[in-house]
Nucleic acid binder design. Structure first.
Length: 115
DNA sequence: CGCTTGACAGGTC
DNA sequence: AGACCTGCCAAGC
């Protein structure tokens, strides 16, 4: 639906493969909203949504400023999936683990907006 | 109906 | 390199 931004976000996040991560900005770009909305939507995401696979564009866990237990939870879940961390909140080789919706490959770079 | 709040991003200083 | 500022826009109150 038009206003079902949350649903879009959840569905897209659910597509992130196990052991991979995605940036808020990438999700936002694909869904057609802003990165803040992604984080905001994920703060109240239902069960089954791999919210822990979404990190900021620096490859760090942006959550946990107020509630650092969430940060540790996210880190634990990612480590369990095989993601390595150089620091307690910094993913090593972020570019390697990064996953993008609709695989860029060669051709699809002419379109600025997907769908 | 309007101000505040965010699990961000990108730029500037 | 790190602190700070601004844009973004749906939901909450």
């Amino acid at each position: 639906m038009a206003g079902d931004v949350f649903g879009k976000i959840f569905r897209l996040v659910a597509r992130i493969p196990r052991g991979r991560v995605c940036a808020y900005g990438d999700i936002a770009w694909k869904v057609g909203t802003t990165p803040r909305h992604v984080g905001w939507a994920l703060s109240g995401c239902p069960d089954g949504v791999p919210w822990h696979r979404v990190v900021n564009h620096k490859g760090q866990l942006s959550i946990g400023k107020r509630a650092h237990y969430l940060r540790e939870l996210q880190r634990g879940l990612l480590v369990k999936e095989g993601v390595r961390f150089s620091n307690s909140d910094n993913i090593s080789d972020f570019d390697r683990y990064r996953w993008r919706p609709r695989i860029p490959r060669r051709a699809s770079r002419t379109s600025k907006k997907p769908l």
